[in-house]
Design a protein around this nucleic acid. Structure first.
Lengths: 206, 206
DNA sequence: CTCCTCATGTAATTAGTTACATGATTTA
DNA sequence: TAAATCATGTAACTAATTACATGAGGAG
């Protein structure tokens, strides 16, 4: 799905500027469905304007660059409907965290715990954002996707809550950080599960 | 997460050729966690060899090019463990299908039904592949990720089964394909929900 | 007083995908 | 007999991210 179609889709929610479109894709209706940044949006909008699929009125603002508000034309709606008839590409998911967790044996138990917390927190944050929207206000399409998002995020959180401790315990038991012995057997290191709690508040973002 | 780290990770499962690594990422242990193709794997392997992080023995084969089997060196394991300590990038998910479904109002009801079926089938296929593996054979890390995958895929399938029909019905009611009237009100077109059943067996793949 | 939000756009770099080149063996 | 699998690698192309440039106003 190319950036042009994505922008066209975003504009069905109503007229918007490039800046606002980006927000739709990172916080709003299209959040997490399709990552897209300024570098893709602005050129796409320019191309759409040249093709007559959107029209644009510039609103003067003090200091800031003019706010260019784009809206769909009839041709734009038709082009979008057409694009929506094409074959959808297969879903793609990529997760550094899950890849790392697959290689848990190579990672200190403390860091595994941190990774799990962070993963949970990220999903909880998405969930909270979605919970703030009332599905009753949405048309059927967005409501369906919204509900799907809720279930999936909840499933991830539940799985971490149910099996996260067991993973940390297994790693702590299998290869202790303090001892360098390899075959430690089934140690009962699960007792003090909540002491240090990961630390490392710096470098949390980016 | 770059292609080199991904290859290093794959090689923890044991020595493998580039061809086999790709299979790991599309069917095996790392399936759907990180998309990666030949074009990324072969150059990465060459670079890793130059850095001494993997070593390689070529097995002669009749007709085919030599099968180059790569395995991790001690330096490779150390480099991987080091890379695993870096900040994981945020998860990225992209779904053409879900984006399309968000714009369901612009799509004929029949096609919505097809989209839902296809989405369900894709997730069912992934689920079946995962169900074929016994988690008991896995170390804690892969087992955790495996379990997470199962729950998530199941959640998607369940959601489609529970709410898919309602979506199709809403679209069919809101904007009928046969009538061109725009403000049709709350029509009771939900009755014959299962007549044509989508058809279009051609162009199913790719 | 500093940081964040608003606001647009270009340029450079990096990453990823696709196509090509080659070819024997197995399966349908 | 046609197509898929196995097997590696390069070159070209497309797409995406990041950095840069500019700058006012409001919140903390």
């Amino acid at each position: 799905m190319d950036a042009k179609t994505l922008c066209l889709g975003a504009l069905t929610c109503g007229p918007a500027s490039g800046y606002e479109i980006r927000k739709l894709f990172e916080e709003g209706a299209y959040a997490t469905l399709h990552p897209i940044g300024f570098g893709s949006i602005y050129p796409a909008l320019t191309a759409l304007l040249a093709d007559g699929l959107v029209e644009c009125t510039a609103e003067e603002q003090s200091g800031r660059p003019d706010k260019k508000v784009y809206r769909l034309t009839d041709a734009g709606v038709a082009a979008l409907a057409q694009a929506l008839l094409g074959e959808p590409q297969a879903d793609r998911y990529r997760s550094d965290t899950l890849f790392m967790l697959t290689l848990a044996e190579l990672i200190p138990a403390e860091r595994i715990r941190w990774l799990l917390r962070q993963h949970r927190a990220a999903h909880q944050a998405e969930l909270d954002k979605m919970l703030a929207c009332d599905p009753a206000d949405m048309p059927a399409g967005p409501r369906f996707v919204h509900g799907l998002g809720l279930t999936v995020y909840q499933a991830v959180i539940d799985h971490i809550d149910r099996h996260g401790d067991a993973l940390v315990a297994a790693i702590a038991a299998g290869r202790d950080t303090t001892t360098s012995g390899s075959s430690a057997g089934t140690a009962e290191a699960s007792g003090g599960a909540d002491r240090g709690l990961g630390g490392s508040s710096r470098t949390a973002a980016k």
